[in-house]
Design a protein around this nucleic acid. Structure first.
Length: 329
DNA sequence: GCTGAGGTCCGCCAGT
DNA sequence: AGACTGGCGGACCTCA
């Protein structure tokens, strides 16, 4: 079973600490079987004092990280030395070293400081609590900070904005692993919205070409300008100066997804932006985002976000407020 | 929801 | 020998 390890560091904030076990723990398969095992660990297995003044006793030490498929780090006081430009505590570095190479690592709120200090966010987009974004960007110029999103998914490394966006992040991971239906059920069980209303982008998915030096990066950037028209594998391979086979292989290695999945993800994101910011008819949105028909757009939007285009637009537009940025705080 | 055409993905394998 | 490339073909997916 997929194992989620929540790493509770000294001074952890109890609210965020509880989010992963609540969300992942509520995910059920067709026969009501749990889909995740969630365990909480501390660095040495000893109790830690929370930011709320009570201590918690976890049943695992950082050795549990070696068995993790997903590691979630809630915010704590542990990032304070990083803000003073001190190196990451060796015990945290050692704990990170135990995480298997294939595992995902996700931070909630200011825990993104720890991921950045460990170099996991270099050259990648990320987010953090909006009040910290300026300072974060100053400390980590190699990270592309976006304070206007609820979370950023880089495939194996994920960051979320303040506090409750941890819920959105965990729901996103459930959706990624098991689809919208399971994620929506979790949301219903936990009485939270399956996706968040708000005056800012709901999420971004691999928004920029991947690692620096990636050989398909220029072609991906080029493709982003051409989303409105049909793009074929052969055409993109030719643009990259590779055979179709090599391009397919490189693309998978560099992005973690296939070309088709990536294109669909980018087109869904573009359609969402058009739905949010324009009054274009649905079939015009479909056309501009490169979906052949409105039916195709509907299919993909429902698959990715669990809602229809009209529903998405209605929710987003009616909830927009001038103080929207405060919603993620 | 079904269907057929065309596109995509990826294991396999030979060539460099 | 080992790494990389690219063609082939069958399974699978997407779209209208």
């Amino acid at each position: 079973m997929h194992q989620v390890v929540v790493l509770a560091l000294d001074g952890v904030i109890p609210f965020e600490l509880g989010i992963p076990s609540r969300i992942f723990g509520a995910a059920r398969g067709p026969a009501e079987e749990p889909l995740y095992r969630v365990v909480t660990a501390t660095l040495d297995g000893a109790p830690v004092m929370t930011e709320a003044g009570f201590s918690i006793t976890a049943q695992h030490g950082s050795d549990a990280l070696a068995e993790a498929d997903t590691v979630v780090i809630p915010p704590s006081r542990a990032h304070e030395p990083v803000k003073e430009r001190l190196p990451l505590d060796p015990s945290i570095v050692a704990a990170f070293g135990r995480i298997p190479p294939g595992a995902r690592i996700a931070s909630i709120c200011t825990a993104s400081y720890l991921l950045a200090a460990a170099g996991l966010l270099d050259g990648r987009p990320a987010t953090t609590h909006w009040r910290e974004s300026e300072n974060f960007q100053r400390l980590f110029p190699r990270v592309a900070v976006d304070a206007n999103v609820l979370f950023v998914d880089n495939g194996s490394v994920l960051t979320s904005a303040g506090v409750a966006s941890g819920v959105d992040l965990c729901l996103h991971l459930v959706r990624r692993d098991h689809g919208s239906d399971v994620a929506n059920q979790v949301a219903r069980r936990c009485v939270v919205p399956p996706w968040r209303d708000g005056g800012q982008a709901q999420f971004i998915e691999r928004p920029v070409p991947g690692p620096v030096g990636a050989t398909t990066a220029a072609t991906r950037a080029w493709a982003l300008e051409q989303l409105h028209r049909p793009l074929t594998l052969a055409e993109l391979a030719a643009h990259a100066g590779m055979s179709v086979r090599t391009f397919t292989r490189r693309f998978r290695e560099e992005t973690g997804v296939t070309l088709g999945q990536w294109l669909t993800g980018q087109r869904v994101a573009l359609a969402c932006r058009l739905l949010e910011t324009s009054d274009l008819a649905i079939d015009h949105v479909a056309d501009r985002a490169g979906f052949g028909t409105a039916g195709s757009l509907r299919h993909h939007l429902r698959h990715s976000l669990g809602v229809s285009p009209a529903h998405y637009r209605r929710t987003f537009r009616t909830s927009r407020t001038p103080t929207a940025t405060a919603i993620t705080a």
